[in-house]
Design a protein around this nucleic acid. Structure first.
Length: 202
DNA sequence: ACAAGGATTCACT
DNA sequence: GTGAATCCTTGTA
């Protein structure tokens, strides 16, 4: 028994916390995720419809949507919703629970805590890049998602780095976990008034 | 074919 | 805590 990824993405996202994502020798326990609701969500890459980049999100759930951003970083999402619905969950941060040495060698100079703390760092630690886009994570491919230790407590708050709909509390993290990335509101975010919560301090 | 923007990270102070 | 670097994707002509 695994996950029902066809449920609304904001319900699926928190259930991924504590799960373990593995690629080769490296495994990461997810501690922070964000939900994106496709066509209904102005912050989603799929908001404007199907393109060659976001096509994976429109397909069946359980596949990896990997995209390149800021000219240097890869970010990984798990496509959710039934086939034809373009929702997804962005994997923002995790704790490396296996293959620490490999992850560390990929990350170069980095503390244990920072190995997968942040979307770009997470993909780098796992060795995930665009070539794995579209890979299924629940059916025994190179990248696998498996159940882990359920988190004791979960918090929700505004999403990070999103310039629109930043007030929707669709960022989920494990309360008090040191591997959650530092909260940093998008420099392009509109209203500076609503930001109160802080991710890493718990 | 061209121009604009981005779901970030790193090094330095 | 703050500033700078990077190139791919998308929409429009």
């Amino acid at each position: 028994m695994t996950w029902d990824l066809t449920a609304p993405v904001w319900e699926v996202a928190p259930t991924l916390l504590g799960a373990v994502l593995s690629h080769g020798p490296v495994s990461v326990r997810l501690v922070e995720v964000e939900a994106y609701d496709g066509g209904n969500d102005p912050a989603s890459h799929a908001y404007r419809g199907l393109t060659s980049r976001n096509a994976v999100m429109f397909g069946p759930p359980g596949h990896l949507y990997v995209y390149f951003t800021y000219g240097m970083h890869w970010a990984a999402n798990i496509a959710c919703g039934p086939d034809g619905t373009a929702s997804g969950v962005l994997l923002r941060a995790g704790e490396v629970v296996a293959g620490v040495e490999v992850a560390h060698s990929r990350r170069g100079r980095s503390t244990l805590r920072d190995l997968a703390r942040g979307p770009g760092r997470l993909t780098q630690a796992l060795g995930i890049d665009g070539s794995l886009g579209g890979a299924a994570v629940l059916t025994g491919g190179p990248v696998r998602l498996s159940p882990g230790v359920a988190p004791a407590r979960i918090e929700a708050g505004p999403r990070v780095g999103v310039s629109v709909a930043a007030d929707v509390p669709w960022r989920f993290w494990i309360t008090g976990d040191p591997h959650v990335s530092a909260y940093r509101r998008s420099p392009r975010a509109v209203s500076p008034t609503a930001a109160t919560s802080r991710g890493s301090t718990g």
